[in-house]
Nucleic acid binder design. Structure first.
Lengths: 222, 222
DNA sequence: TATGATTTTTAGATAAATCTAAAAATAGTT
DNA sequence: AACTATTTTTAGATTTATCTAAAAATCATA
């Protein structure tokens, strides 16, 4: 049996997982430090410890990737985080922009039975309130054919199914624009000058979204 | 605003609260150490820090009591612990003997909104699955006219409303005996020799309970 | 009240997670 | 290849929570 990890160690694994998934390359010391708001020196210290515990592959100056063990733990953390977010929104009536910080705490609760019972209580959801897939107990993600709104073309009709950035600021911006998961969008115009998009929202309202906003939205084409 | 406490500090406050409530006297260093499974020396170290933060009254060699600040925090911890236990039993179908350790972790989650929303979701319960009163947001406990089963007399009829010991072992013993919150008991006999009690359970079954068991059960007389 | 037992505190160490400042390695660019 | 900029690591401290062993204070009771 593997040793019980500290919250800090778990946070490092999650950060490394996020970087490696997104960028498909080893995570750098600075990169990790930026996510965890800590110095590169502290990161190096921790990387040595995680390598010692067989959770990451670590070679000086070469960056790190997760071992199978590390991946399993990171995936289970993601599972817990997303299940708790779902609980907070669906059962406790939190709005989707307020749940991240609380879930960051809840994901560190150690109890395998709790996770499985929570999952059942929620009806085994496949996606969280931000549209992110929730891995199952075996660590498998439900895959969804989704594209970045930024890559949609003029004339496309699509449904919003996820966000890339789940910060309070972004989610509040979306709420203000009346944009949420399930919103229907039609691309009316793409302005090459600033890469912004004019869209028709739910067949009713015309709005313009900046490049930054589009890059943080996932849609599924009809 | 008071500084954010570590889990360890919170656990010390809870231990001190428990001792002071039960024994109505200052908590001793050894006493606290026994509850938290730590050495007297470590306790002394921590007491200095808590006194520094105005959470306890501390005088060398004299034991400690909680300040108003300390009491508020301890009560809120109790509130969270008992609300989470209620959630685990009522919503996630945990049995009452399995929830203590998980609630010990959950009670340290920091989010006032979460507590209030959880309370509402549960229907503002006044007692937890072990019959312990849940303090409200203002820190007030609902009082219940309950006595220790050990102090009941021959002929008394009463209802089980709480347990003193919420250890897995004790709760499993009760479950085995088909004893639970709400069970009706009638005292048939009290044996002076070993202070054990013969009772009629739910008007059906005669069982004998040892002194230890009786001391850990609370009942309300009709 | 003296004395032995118990409780509590001090002193000095250790381990985890962090920091700053400086050194070392790597990467980018002419 | 050489120089510069960036990234990463090392070295040495700090803070928190813990420990053991020994000293000091208090308690209990003969």
């Amino acid at each position: 049996m593997t040793h019980r990890l500290s919250q800090t160690e778990e946070n490092y694994l999650k950060a490394i997982f996020t970087i490696c998934e997104k960028e498909e390359k080893p995570a750098g010391t600075n990169n990790i430090g930026a996510i965890l708001q800590t110095s590169a020196a502290s990161v190096t210290d921790m990387l040595k410890r995680l390598a010692e515990k067989d959770l990451i592959f670590y070679e000086k100056y070469k960056g790190v990737t997760l071992t199978e063990n590390g991946k399993t733990i990171a995936t289970q953390l993601l599972r817990k985080h997303r299940l708790w977010e779902t609980f907070l929104v669906e059962k406790l009536n939190f709005s989707w922009d307020k749940v991240h910080n609380i879930a960051e705490q809840l994901e560190h609760i150690k109890s395998p039975e709790l996770v499985e019972k929570l999952d059942n209580f929620l009806g085994n959801p496949k996606f969280d309130p931000h549209g992110e897939p929730i891995p199952n107990a075996a660590g498998e993600f439900t895959f969804r054919r989704q594209i970045n709104l930024f890559n949609a073309a003029k004339g496309d009709k699509a449904t919003v199914v996820g966000v890339q950035d789940d910060s309070e600021q972004f989610l509040q911006y979306l709420t203000q624009q009346n944009l949420m998961l399930g919103s229907k969008v039609e691309i009316l115009e793409k302005f090459p000058y600033d890469q912004s998009l004019k869209i028709l929202l739910n067949g009713k309202t015309e709005i313009v979204l900046s490049e930054k906003v589009c890059r943080n939205l996932y849609v599924q084409r009809k």
